[in-house]
Write a protein that binds this DNA or RNA. Structure first.
Length: 272
DNA sequence: GAATACCTGAGC
DNA sequence: GCTCAGGTATTC
């Protein structure tokens, strides 16, 4: 499911609905999604109050406080199909692996493919567990971003997907950003002028912000905190549109495999 | 880089 | 039955 805009959507909802609420129960039905044991997780989180939600790239880090003891920090990554939601009269199906009970308010973690992770970490903002992850794509400045890609020999598509350079873009928003910037997915940094790279950087941020505004993209599984799909799918120009006509020039959108991921681009608008 | 592994479901 | 899927870590 989720790239930066979808994760931001979930983080905003967690902050808005759960801040100040105490975790009174934690039911774990499938412990494979936990980074630590069920006992350690329960011990660290139960009877604590949620008092902060932070997002870095596609990671959500929740701060739980307790009067005397030190705070606990729970880091969540939804990977491909993770969902966090609260629904009235919801009966959990077999894909709900964990349910938080915030003093009578049940919040479910559901994940069809079980790739997602919830783990206790050592910091509420920059856990050592994600020290290898680069700055958030919405915050990284052009100079720093440019310096970290300019010497690389990989195609732009691979560099934009590389969370170590900047965190948050995934397959959908990389394809969309490259299309809007008019850059071919196989183009390398040295094929592009600084002006073109600036365009990629600024367009990527614009796409992410725009998608956040529309509640993110639901392509297959994504659902927001209230179980509703995001509205950005209808704004997608190339992702998932191989074989269709380009909205700008009318020629056929092509599919291509880059960095092990399916990619869509317009051969006319994105010339190598 | 590429291949593989982690999982389940959808679509052909 | 096969291939593919919004992600990432690990191993050549």
């Amino acid at each position: 499911m989720p790239e930066l805009p979808e994760v931001e959507n979930v983080a905003l909802a967690l902050r808005a609905h759960l801040t100040g609420r105490k975790l009174t129960g934690l039911k774990v039905l499938y412990s494979g999604i936990l980074g630590q044991s069920v006992a350690a997780t329960r011990k660290a989180l139960l009877d604590r109050t949620l008092d902060g939600v932070h997002r870095h790239g596609k990671y959500i880090i929740i701060n739980f406080s307790h009067g005397q003891r030190p705070d606990s920090h729970l880091m969540i990554h939804l990977r491909m199909t993770g969902q966090i939601f609260i629904l009235d009269d919801y009966i959990p199906d077999k894909h709900v692996h964990l349910t938080f009970d915030f003093d009578g308010l049940p919040v479910h973690y559901r994940d069809i493919r079980k790739f997602g992770r919830l783990e206790l970490v050592d910091d509420a903002i920059h856990p050592s567990a994600i020290a290898h992850v680069g700055p958030d794509m919405l915050e990284v400045r052009f100079k720093a971003w440019h310096e970290s890609i300019s010497y690389r020999r990989a195609p732009m598509k691979a560099l934009l997907l590389d969370q170590g350079i900047a965190a948050g873009l995934g397959n959908i928003y990389v394809d969309e950003s490259l299309f809007l910037a008019g850059v071919h997915p196989l183009a390398k940094p040295q094929d592009l002028s600084e002006k073109e790279l600036y365009e990629v950087w600024s367009v990527a941020k614009r796409v992410l912000r725009n998608s956040i505004k529309h509640g993110g993209t639901t392509f297959m599984d994504f659902k927001n905190f209230h179980g509703k799909p995001g509205n950005f799918r209808r704004k997608l120009r190339v992702y998932g549109r191989a074989g269709e006509d380009c909205a700008v020039c009318g020629c056929e959108i092509e599919g291509l495999r880059v960095a092990g991921r399916s990619s869509c681009f317009c051969p006319e608008c994105q010339v190598l």
